[in-house]
Design a binder for these strands. Structure first.
Lengths: 363, 363
DNA sequence: CATAGCTATGACATCGGTGTCATGACATCG
DNA sequence: CGATGTCATGACACCGATGTCATAGCTATG
């Protein structure tokens, strides 16, 4: 690979002048500049970031730690990769900054994180973003204090800057939109109670009912998800939960599921019970995992988990911290997403008076 | 960030001796070694890869170009991310080599590739892997000849080393497995004929029929996929194709689809026509996109596109070329995957004699 | 006991850029 | 016409690691 000295020799100037041409730094005579550019083109010269980094003590690198790419085998078997959209958002936001992204993957083993951080520090990254696969609390090993750290889709208890989804708001908005379509008996078959998201979403569900003057019925709210990735158990639990709410004296007109994958399973289960969607029953998911929501027939209504936005916010935050233009926020930044409407929710006839009263309360 | 000079000063030795301790290079007295290690721990010293790279002229970096992470918006809307598993395979294989992976994303715009290659060359990557989103022919800008290049899931006409899926074999094995289950009327609603995969898979389909002594019926083979990502048109085309084959005087007992997503759509379409899976009709997909095949109810039989294996093979090939231990292969390396059986294919009763004759021909 | 050979260590140069400072050639101004 | 300023350019040092070579202090060998 050609060096700046090669270019200098070929164009008959000093390396420093070549450097000036490359960086448009200082005054260079037009003829000199052209000669240098010709030599650069001839030699296919590309400046070495390693040498630059050493001189300037700035690597121009940002590290990203994720499990989204090489997942643990058990997860890869069944799950989608929605958290990958966070990585996508980060890529997009990073692009504009001119920095290069180093992506490292935990391979599902969190104990590899210190090793990855070490590698990043060897490369003198200016900052690190840690992406979690779902909204949760984490605990990371310390990084050198000259390296900025931002958490995406997770938070810790030592006040590391973090960007997380607004689960409360998502479920609140989803249920509010169902109410606006005339639904009153709204069941929620949630994720496992051990998920960080579940408590916030459940509260959003209750508050949305509350605001519309609909009484909360605890028999309609059932966690129907297991933590273990045991596909058989998942189906059984879901089947049973659906059975329970549909057997109620006053069954729901719509069921919200903890995520789109549960809803996808429910499509098969409900149809095998002879229930037609959305005529007999409406269904809503969560995540707006588009492969699912848009490919299912009928398309699935879902609350969008704003993964890309989380990635972008996290990147902007990190870049701001690197530049020194942004201070670390005191509390996690919450990002909310829209409701993605599908054809899985039927509009129910509702007295005009009720509708207008809902509109009023929604304002 | 502390340097090797800081460590040398604190431990009272020369930088070179510190270097020796770090690299276990040459003889160092035990007491000296301990003093140096103590200083390293105290200062939190981490060697700089930039400085190392400059001295050794080896960056330890490998570049990866993909569209799998930040997809073009239109694609992200509807598609899964199966090609991401190639990236996963590459990560896994690269890990063991001690090299660091630089991942760059085209963001769906292939015209950004030269820019990405340029960035990689600035970082003096030792090799580059280019990953395509589906099996196809590509044409990449030239890279400096000291940089090795390997194509994954694609190939070109200038003989760049490439690793591609064996589409012929996949469809052949799938159809053969259907025949073994007693099916004789086998329909194939393929991807668009413009896809590289389609011609190979169609041939595999025909050869498998041929081998089993089943006559090829052109009315059973219909391309049912559009190139544009127009969801509405996709559904219509699929609906119509299904309608055509089911209206035949002698309808198929099983339909193979061009990919799992088409099969997923078909589940909804077939059920809305009152057809029960797999009792009335069997269905098979392609890709073994596990989110689909294992979450659908009933689970979907599919030919596995060996994405992870492609990634691993591509990585091994590249690393071999970097080390100089492997020569560039003359023709693309073809990788095949297994058939992933699901519950969407029903076993049909077949005369013993016929079954045994099939077994004979399959050997 | 002299010398070759080994052990443990350091001085110095080098990798490829760039910041600092110096310098020669002109132009401008009083 | 000499002093001053500007423009264009180059010499040199430095960033952090490491390969090469040198060397002081030992030990084994004839």
């Amino acid at each position: 690979m050609a060096t700046i000295y090669d270019v200098a020799r070929v164009s008959g100037v000093s390396p420093k002048t070549v450097s000036r041409v490359i960086n448009r730094d200082g005054a260079v005579k037009k003829s000199t500049k052209e000669a240098v550019e010709k030599a650069i083109a001839e030699l296919g010269y590309v400046p070495s970031t390693a040498a630059r980094a050493m001189r300037s003590n700035k690597s121009g690198l940002v590290g990203l730690i994720t499990g989204a790419i090489s997942l643990s085998p058990s997860r890869a078997d069944v799950s989608g990769l929605p958290d990958l959209f966070i990585v996508q958002g980060i890529q997009k936001a990073m692009e504009a900054s001119g920095k290069t992204l180093l992506i490292a993957d935990t391979g599902g083993q969190t104990d590899r994180v210190p090793q990855l951080i070490r590698t990043f520090e060897e490369h003198r990254v200016e900052g690190i973003i840690y992406v979690a696969d779902h909204h949760r609390k984490v605990s990371l090993p310390p990084v050198s204090k000259s390296t900025k750290l931002v958490l995406a889709n997770c938070y810790d208890d030592v006040g590391t800057p973090a960007v997380i989804p607004n689960d409360y708001r998502g479920q609140f908005d989803l249920v509010t939109s169902l109410i606006a379509k005339g639904h009153r008996r709204i069941s929620y078959l949630s994720l496992s109670v051990h998920r960080e998201a579940t408590k916030h979403r459940s509260q959003g569900y209750r508050d949305a009912l509350d605001r519309a003057g609909v009484a909360f019925d605890p028999t309609l709210l059932i966690p129907a998800d297991v933590d273990a990735s045991d596909s058989e158990a998942e189906v059984q639990l879901l089947w049973d939960a659906i059975d329970r709410v549909l057997s109620l004296p006053e069954p729901p007109s719509v069921i919200c599921f903890g995520n789109d994958r549960m809803a996808m399973r429910a499509y098969g289960i409900l149809r095998s019970r002879g229930i037609s969607l959305p005529d007999d029953l409406s269904v809503a998911g969560y995540d707006n995992h588009k492969l699912i929501t848009q490919t299912l027939y009928p398309t699935l209504t879902s609350a969008e988990l704003p993964y890309a936005a989380i990635g972008i916010r996290a990147t902007d935050l990190l870049l701001g911290m690197i530049n020194g233009t942004t201070d670390a926020p005191a509390a996690p930044i919450q990002v909310s997403g829209p409701i993605a409407p599908g054809k899985s929710v039927k509009e129910l006839p509702t007295p005009i008076t009720k509708l207008s009263s809902i509109r009023r309360t929604t304002k």
